[in-house]
Design a protein around this nucleic acid. Sequence first.
DNA 1: CAAATAGTTAACCAAATAGTTAAACTATTT
DNA 2: AAATAGTTTAACTATTTGGTTAACTATTTG
Lengths: 203, 203
Amino acid sequence: MSRALTTEQRIKEAAKKVFISKGLAGARMQEIADEAQINKAMLHYYYRNKQQLFKNIFDEVIAEFAPKIMAILGEELSLEEKVNKFVGHYLDLLRANPFIPLFLFSELRNQPHEVVEKVGIKRGGVLKRLEKQLKKEAQAGRIKPITPIEFIANLVSLTVFPFLAQPMLGEIFGLKDKEFEGFIEQRKVTIPEFIMSAINLKH
Amino acid sequence: MSRALTTEQRIKEAAKKVFISKGLAGARMQEIADEAQINKAMLHYYYRNKQQLFKNIFDEVIAEFAPKIMAILGEELSLEEKVNKFVGHYLDLLRANPFIPLFLFSELRNQPHEVVEKVGIKRGGVLKRLEKQLKKEAQAGRIKPITPIEFIANLVSLTVFPFLAQPMLGEIFGLKDKEFEGFIEQRKVTIPEFIMSAINLKH
DNA sequence: CAAATAGTTAACCAAATAGTTAAACTATTT
DNA sequence: AAATAGTTTAACTATTTGGTTAACTATTTG
């Protein structure tokens, strides 16, 4: 094994890149092969067909993203700490992989049940704990009442959406890649401030 | 013209439906023809090829969505009224066309410049006016300072995101279609509250 | 080392799919 | 009603694309 990467690794890298930017239907086996600098037949040697290759990549991407992220919401932290940690971690992850959200949401449409299975968010566990925390804080008069579904929807919306709209933000506000990075970095601070302000009762 | 719809209209309806749910790459001319209950050759008679058919649909969808929406941000309204009107209108529009956002963002990747051209948001106009309003409110001590890009990003994020994540929300929180509608209806109230709380200085 | 095994390639194939043609049919004009 | 323009269909062609095969090369192993 003298080369830096094995053929299988190169295939995975290539497939990941192409699938993520073009989706399942838009990706071409030839393009993946070219990207991996191998013969097209090798794809079929390592992964029987396009479906299986895709499934492999998709599962890997989900496994890389979902667990570490959702776990934060279940940790033993104050609300403010949770929001801070969630936003910070997630933004870093997304900045390094800005095309993942669109890729995931696109393919989510085709098989919602399977995706959620893989993501592994059960309605119990994490959610129940967060619900308790929100109720407790609200009853103590520290925050306004908010359902966990709204809380999570708002948190994830604010964090993820800019990456979906990146090309548009870029065009409208004239943000180059470098400036977009700055914008994201800034949002590590402003999103938690925004959320905590929104639900806080005291200044 | 005895039939309810002309052939061209039926083609457009069908193409819209198929393109929106499958994307450009995933859509099949035969499927569009079947959906429109016509011969495949008719597609080529009315629209020379797949690209042109797609471009037509895409332009129409953008023209239907972008202008009415962005205009609100430039109107002569208080911030609170703007937020209320924007969220209310946009949510209604999206509820009737829940697949549009994913469709737009997917195809946005391929041609960001053209899309923004079509959407017609120039950096001047609407944006400049909103910026002035935000500055004025902040200087008067009524809201916390916020850049227009963050304001718009937050507003649009909170409004649009749930439709992208709909299948996931459905699975995780067990929302059926009917309940999702209720969730959206509820957000007409909670999103403006959330935003105004977040930026307001006084209770 | 030699046989077996694993990895790789170019050429090929078949299915799917976009696009074309010519003829028939229908509505409109003269 | 004849001519013309517009519409629709079935059959066909061209191209793209996922997948296969057989021959070849490198590597492992007995």
